[in-house]
């Protein structure tokens, strides 16, 4: 059982890779357009940070956090969303595929549908966001005086990985809704892009109920807020036990289970009650 599960996972990754490689070659047929779009992508993503910079011309702290601290949140949020978008973001076009009838073409290939769909329209131009966010994270770390302890060092990669997985699950979970309601794409945007925007700001800025919602509801707080409290040594506005600050991998694992269940239910509904 375990063996077949690993084999299936490996085959999924390989299918993703094969399809993504085809799209990369396709897009390279329009090289100039690609370069322009990558630059535009970086510029668009940088706007939010320019706004932050302008805000900090008028104040030294926002919700009790300094500019480098906000840049830390901005970088980690953007990195997680950007990587998730790069890896699985294309899944959000599912509703369109259902309407056009092209989902069937994916289903007749001997490869996992989810892996194929995540790689569909894969574009390296989406590297714009993780690159820009990564650069800002590096800048913030150079300006922050973090007291590095082993647990904090470990939290850094754990946070980025778990954050990427959490956002990827939001993408996949949101796309699953499109099996029933093919115009749910925009709704999903408000959770992915809206969520990432929220995580760019300190939790102290928002109403407590909203922050609690990101811990116990859609667990976006585990993407960067909770581990950041530990790394930057900031007080928790909710006063949760310290264990929450280390719990990102657990939250990510729960997200994977939930997203997988949603996807399976959605695909079953399509094959069972499709049009």
């Amino acid at each position: 059982m375990a063996e077949t599960l690993t084999a299936r996972a490996a085959w999924s990754v390989r299918s993703w890779w094969l399809v993504a490689a085809m799209w990369t070659r396709s897009i390279m047929a329009y090289r100039i357009s690609f370069t322009l779009m990558l630059l535009a992508n970086i510029a668009t993503n940088s706007l939010d940070f320019v706004v932050l910079l302008l805000m900090f011309r008028h104040t030294d702290t926002l919700g009790g956090w300094t500019l480098p601290e906000l840049a830390f949140l901005y970088g980690t949020s953007g990195l997680a969303l950007g990587l998730a978008n790069l890896l699985v973001g294309s899944i959000d076009a599912l509703g369109q595929r259902i309407r056009a009838g092209t989902l069937d073409i994916v289903l007749i290939r001997p490869a996992p549908a989810l892996a194929q769909l995540c790689a569909e329209r894969f574009s390296l131009r989406r590297l714009g966001r993780p690159l820009q966010a990564g650069a800002l994270l590096a800048w913030s770390l150079s300006r922050l005086d973090v007291h590095w302890t082993p647990d904090r060092l470990l939290l850094m990669p754990m946070m980025v990985c778990a954050g990427t997985v959490i956002f990827a699950c939001v993408f996949i979970g949101g796309a699953s809704v499109q099996f029933w309601w093919d115009e749910a794409k925009e709704l999903q945007n408000s959770f992915t892009y809206g969520g990432a925007t929220m995580l760019q700001y300190p939790p102290t800025v928002f109403a407590r109920e909203l922050v609690a919602g990101t811990v116990f509801g859609l667990p976006l707080a585990f993407v960067n807020w909770l581990p950041a409290l530990r790394i930057l040594d900031k007080p928790d506005p909710l006063g949760l036990p310290a264990a929450f600050q280390y719990a990102s991998p657990l939250a990510a694992a729960l997200c994977v289970l939930a997203a997988a269940a949603a996807w399976r239910a959605g695909l079953r509904a399509y094959r069972g009650t499709g049009s």
Partner: peptide, 27 residues
């Protein structure tokens, strides 16, 4: 449906940004 979903997205972003403005004007 698309209009409804879009209006919802505007509302979500409105909420998030409103809180950031509140924080800025608080300072």
């Amino acid at each position: 449906a698309a209009t409804l979903a879009g209006a919802f997205t505007n509302t979500v972003f409105g909420c998030i940004l409103a809180y950031t403005f509140l924080a800025l004007w608080h300072a």
